[in-house]
């Protein structure tokens, strides 16, 4: 028996919105410690790693480890049927063919059940090594989303250069070029508005806008985003999900021709 309940479906709705552009299918691995998803986009350029800890759920029970292959499009449609304040329960038997989503309104007067067929998927797990990154930047997630959107108008790639002075985003294309520099905030009263740079060595990396613009769909999950970068390795773009877990996106850099 697997059962996981969240008091408000809003978190799960936001998680689905944050992955639906990149993933068509994904395996949800459920164990005593929580739910984990690791999946690449179709082109194998990026990797999504989602972790929801069991102690972050209002109720969590997982008698046997389960790997449930889910169609992300269908799951997104089902989650859109829930109101943000509805309680959501995920339920499956030990060797499931289906998963059931149960939405209950706050006043308990409406109870909706949606059953979704699971799909068989080949599990292809990537081992992500522990990495000490040259630059780790924390910045407001809305600012990052804004910069990605704005610079995407100029080119199909964004170059991120980080030094101790700050972080610079730039894009160049046929119509011109653009760059946005952010300095580390000296003394921000509000933690969520801060730009913090932890730099060991300066880095300069170029990434496809298309993927960055998919990652920023996670913006509603967290006020801050953490970008971890080292030369010639994938960018890590991380959003905390309240007290329950995190979503990390890994993106392979562009390589100089």
């Amino acid at each position: 028996m697997f059962e996981a309940r969240l008091a408000q479906s809003a978190i799960l709705k936001k998680v689905l919105e944050a992955v639906k552009d990149l993933l068509t299918e994904a395996t949800f691995e459920c164990s005593d410690s929580g739910i984990q998803v690791q999946a690449m986009d179709n082109a194998h350029v990026s990797l999504v790693s989602l972790n929801l800890r069991s102690d972050g759920f209002d109720k969590y029970r997982c008698d046997r480890n389960l790997s449930m292959g889910m169609n992300i499009g269908t799951m997104t449609k089902i989650l859109r049927c829930a109101s943000s304040e509805d309680t959501v329960t995920l339920r499956a038997v030990d060797s499931p063919d289906n998963i059931i989503f149960i939405f209950e309104s706050q006043n308990k007067e409406k109870l909706a059940e949606y059953e979704m067929k699971l799909i068989n998927m080949d599990l292809e797990h990537l081992g992500i090594p522990e990495t000490m990154y040259s630059c780790v930047v924390k910045m407001p997630s809305q600012e990052f989303a804004r910069i990605c959107r704005d610079l995407s108008q100029f080119g199909e790639a964004i170059t991120i250069a980080c030094s101790k002075e700050g972080i610079k985003f730039s894009a160049a294309g046929d119509y011109g070029n653009a760059n946005v520099k952010l300095a580390q905030t000296a003394d921000s009263d509000k933690e969520e508005e801060a730009v913090l740079i932890d730099m060991q060595e300066p880095v300069k990396l170029t990434f496809a806008c298309r993927y960055l613009n998919s990652f920023v769909k996670a913006t509603p999950l967290c006020a801050q985003v953490k970008l971890s970068m080292s030369s010639d390795v994938p960018l890590v773009c991380e959003y905390q999900i309240g007290e329950i877990g995190h979503i990390r996106y890994y993106l392979a850099p562009k390589i100089d021709d």
């Binding site: 194998h44 350029v45 990797l47 797990h125 990537l126 170029t206 390795v233 562009k254 021709d257």
Partner: peptide
């Protein structure tokens, strides 16, 4: 702006 790298060339398939 360069060739797009693949994520599975950076991480080992387990």
């Amino acid at each position: 702006t360069g060739t797009q790298g693949r994520i599975d060339s950076f991480f080992k398939v387990l």
